[in-house]
Design a protein around this nucleic acid. Structure first.
Lengths: 179, 179
DNA sequence: TATTGTTATACTCTATAACTATA
DNA sequence: TATAGTTATAGAGTATAACAATA
């Protein structure tokens, strides 16, 4: 079977010991489960996807206006993806798009009253799910640790690549054609 | 704007304080970034999606055979979704499907030599990405804390709902038609 | 009757490339 | 030339419902 041991082959590459691998898998599975539940709640109570909720929540948090590029950052990884989502949200009357006076290339996105109302309507249930699934089994100390760790990791990742623009890529094909 | 304060409205519902909300967002964004990078690596080096990698890794870890239902658990949330992925993996020669002697309703999934080889080929780069993005900014103590916390959370979530079967649902429509 | 798995179908979402317009 | 955004298009992925077969 596959060799999960550190440095199982290669050229001095930094490897993970079994403990690290376990931590990584636990993190990914837990977040996957959390996200799945959260998406169900958002869909059921607000007919929103998680991405759409994030976009609205960002706009609500800054109290209104953001540029498409600012809005995209950290949520969506392609321009066209954001245009698509913004189109849906605009059609649903939750946001508005208009020209920017400062930079005429830019589009200013504004959240509507309906958009704000929807966020307000969906948020309590959202928070409830997160509380029940994520925070219930955690102590206050766990919470502090988790917050400290994850914000450090997030900042580390934000710093690393250019982001919001496609890095490098080589063969964007399908399932292992080379086997 | 939207009210993010605890108990902003409702009927005694358990709410999140701002610290908890921050921890939640940091967690989700960090994992989202990590997953995005990891998916690029898997696609580039092995033409695999993350789901496909998970399925192969599970099969590799148990050294071979699993039932479709066992394989789905925790990775995919619908039967047909797994059938689709298994079809791709089988077409690519990475797995094999056959009848189960024990239960003739079941399908036994077996990883092939090519499948094992691919996991082995992709894993070092995968591990490298995880190390660089997730573990680099963490101390040994952070690692212990994170592992402890996330495995507790994961187990808590696993216990909660029935899983692997669709829970309840109400209105699986599109973007907020009610506004 | 309940469970395992597949199929058909419809739809959401994402990404690439080409394009327009402004800085 | 570089940046902001849109459009067209193609493809991956997911979920629901209906179905067949076995327990």
């Amino acid at each position: 079977m596959a060799d999960f041991r550190p440095d199982a082959g290669a050229d001095g590459v930094q490897a993970l010991d079994p403990e690290q691998l376990g931590v990584y898998f636990a993190l990914m599975e837990a977040v996957s489960l959390l996200q799945h539940h959260v998406e169900q709640q958002l869909r059921t109570e607000g007919d929103l996807s998680y991405v759409q909720f994030q976009l609205l929540a960002r706009l609500a948090a800054v109290h209104g206006q953001l540029t498409m590029t600012q809005l995209a950052d950290g949520v969506v990884y392609s321009r066209s993806g954001l245009t698509y989502q913004a189109g849906l949200l605009e059609k649903a009357g939750l946001i508005t798009r208009g020209p920017s006076p400062a930079d005429e290339r830019a589009t200013l996105v504004t959240i509507t009253e309906d958009g704000l109302a929807l966020v307000g309507r969906v948020l309590p249930g959202h928070i409830q799910v997160v509380h029940r699934l994520l925070f219930e089994p955690l102590s206050d100390e766990d919470l502090r640790h988790l917050g400290d760790i994850m914000s450090r990791v997030r900042d580390h990742m934000r710093a690393q690549p250019p982001r919001s623009a496609a890095p490098r890529k080589r063969r964007p094909t399908h399932v292992a054609k080379d086997r």
